[in-house]
Design a protein around this nucleic acid. Sequence first.
DNA 1: GTTCTTGCAAAATATTTGCAAGACG
DNA 2: CGTCTTGCAAATATTTTGCAAGAAC
Lengths: 136, 136
Amino acid sequence: MTATESILSESGIRPTSNRILVLKELLDSTRPLSLSELEKNIHTLDKSSIFRTLSTFLEHHLIHPIEDGRGIVRYEICHGTNSCTVNDMHVHFYCESCHNVYCFEDIPTPIVSLPHGFSIHTLNYMLKGICPKCEH
Amino acid sequence: MTATESILSESGIRPTSNRILVLKELLDSTRPLSLSELEKNIHTLDKSSIFRTLSTFLEHHLIHPIEDGRGIVRYEICHGTNSCTVNDMHVHFYCESCHNVYCFEDIPTPIVSLPHGFSIHTLNYMLKGICPKCEH
DNA sequence: GTTCTTGCAAAATATTTGCAAGACG
DNA sequence: CGTCTTGCAAATATTTTGCAAGAAC
């Protein structure tokens, strides 16, 4: 059993070949990937299969969604073992010029407190601007 | 000249009747609205007109986009006069149950510092969880 | 054999553009 | 007149579902 398979099993997901492929792709990436990016990278899988795989991963809290600023949802592996808690989340930066998303895994997201009654499950902290490559 | 018209003029946008309608709708709302919500609320306008109006507003920094957690872009009036600066941004909460977005205009977004070279233009701080109404 | 998974096709949802007619200055 | 704006229609893009065949247990 490979490491990828172990991750799936530990999350309670049966490790099929498709799921292993999608998970590997997400693990190998340095930034969150969208459905269509995954489709381009894994051309052996149908997008509906990738979509359902992502849904499964989301249900089991193996990944969490990130929005990049244009309404496109990207997905990213959760760091804590099988958990997407607030404390687990890090800062992202979206470059408005090249449309790349950067992860700052070492910078945790600041958390504000809300009025009583709002229970926070997760969060999305996305800074937007121009990245070093696009700056001139 | 009404207040709405003044806002448009000051932003350098010609105050046509359509633009006044869209701006009023956004001003009256307590939460960010999506294109399709605006379409439902203003049934005299075609969605392409609303879309182009929003594009114009975005160009002139009269509104900024907010993502609600499902890849749907919502739009919100900028608070500072004709500016969408980081200091101008506030915290949002997305209820994963009723899919409503709440604005906490009195809670400013915390800002982390990034490595040299990243110039921050704006940001999106979205907390997600369950709102008081959906809590039981 | 019963449930889970997959691929194909197609529906549903959302965004964006082309174009011609009309409004505005 | 020349430019800006608008509505209609249609093209893109993106996400989601139905269904039947196949795989896994």
